[in-house]
């Protein structure tokens, strides 16, 4: 069974998702997921997952290995039947009967590229153009190859291509049918840094063109860099929002003060300021939890000077999304080990 979500993060998911969903855009949503769950026997792959992806949005699905990302993507791609809950993909309700209709409007790039290695790049794409029953095959293939900068590799056997190039062919294949939603499952896993950067650039250019992308990754910087919004999944959905919102949501803003000597009565100085919600001593001063650093810092400086303290520095401390992520994941580890 999956661990119950930590109270404060689960609570936090709601307000953020409400503000960051494209306002009043139900008909504009490329994907709507409501309370979706999937169990394999008594093993839970993911549970009670709800979110929306707007048209033209790049939506990141971030989580550690085994979080349920691939299973979610396969469910939305109609390969796996959910155990409960409902979803709408590309405007079509998810149901076994609607499988072919949904699949014709989306495309998916699975974790491994899955190319026919004894066929050329062109032959692979021709096969899939046939499977999508596309018209104007030649032009579409040229365009897809152009989008991933592989025009000159059309006649290479896929078996002769490097991992990074294969990934680009798989991306071209996924672009053939101009999908309403493009699902990319860990598009850079196993690639070297150069190939990873190339794939990132391609995704960024698709984002520019307004392609709706659902991207799963276990790599934080990838989600932060490419996505308009990020959902953090670990069996259940932990947080959802813009990368900058997530940072703020999980970590209250804080201010670091360094003093020449500790305050003799910190409570009377720090406790008297309404902008300061709490404090903790550090070796050289205090870490203060504040509502707004821009208001707190000047008031704090005046109060400290008034109390006769020698201020060495006052600085706002920044948290990266990485901190947010690690915090969430470590909570899960604790929850699971209980």
């Amino acid at each position: 069974m999956s661990p119950p979500p930590a109270a404060h993060t689960a609570g936090a998911a709601e307000p953020i998702s409400a503000t960051s969903t494209l306002a009043g855009s139900t008909c504009e949503s490329a994907v709507v997921v409501e309370h979706l769950s999937k169990h394999f026997g008594d093993r839970v792959a993911y549970q009670d997952v709800s979110f929306e992806v707007g048209v033209g949005e790049v939506f990141g699905f971030l989580g550690p290995n085994g979080a349920g990302k691939t299973t979610t993507v396969r469910t939305l791609g109609t390969l796996i039947t959910p155990s409960s809950g409902s979803a709408t993909v590309a405007g079509i309700p998810l149901s076994p009967r609607n499988g072919p209709a949904i699949r014709s409007r989306i495309s998916m790039m699975p974790e491994s590229p899955g190319l026919y290695l004894r066929l050329t790049v062109l032959e692979n794409l021709q096969c899939f153009a046939g499977l999508y029953t596309l018209d104007d095959v030649r032009r579409r293939i040229d365009r897809a190859l152009g989008a991933v900068n592989l025009e000159d590799r059309a006649h290479d056997l896929c078996g002769s291509l490097s991992k990074g190039l294969r990934q680009r062919v798989a991306l071209a294949r996924a672009l053939l049918n101009d999908p309403a939603v493009l699902f990319l499952d860990e598009p850079t896993s196993g690639l070297d840094p150069v190939a990873t950067r190339e794939v990132h650039e391609l995704i960024a250019s698709l984002r520019e063109r307004g392609v709706t992308i659902f991207l799963t990754t276990h790599r934080l910087e990838e989600a932060e860099r490419l996505c308009h919004r990020v959902a953090i999944l670990n069996t259940t959905l932990r947080l959802i929002g813009r990368p900058d919102e997530l940072r703020e949501q999980l970590f209250r803003r804080s201010v670091e003060v360094r003093l020449r000597a500790p305050l003799s009565d910190p409570k009377s100085v720090l406790g008297a300021l309404p902008e300061i919600e709490g404090w903790e001593p550090t070796p050289s001063g205090y870490t203060l939890t504040v509502t707004d650093p821009d208001l707190a810092a000047p008031a704090l400086a005046r109060a400290l000077v008034g109390a006769g303290a020698d201020i060495l520095s006052i600085a706002e401390s920044h948290h990266s999304l990485e901190d947010v992520y690690l915090e969430l994941i470590s909570e899960d580890v604790e929850a699971k080990s209980r």
């Binding site: 390969l79 209709a101 998916m108 699975p110 491994s112 899939f128």
Partner: peptide
Amino acid sequence: EQGTLEPVLTTPIR
């Protein structure tokens, strides 16, 4: 084994 089944099954094929 080649991992090609999944991409095929994600097309509209019945």
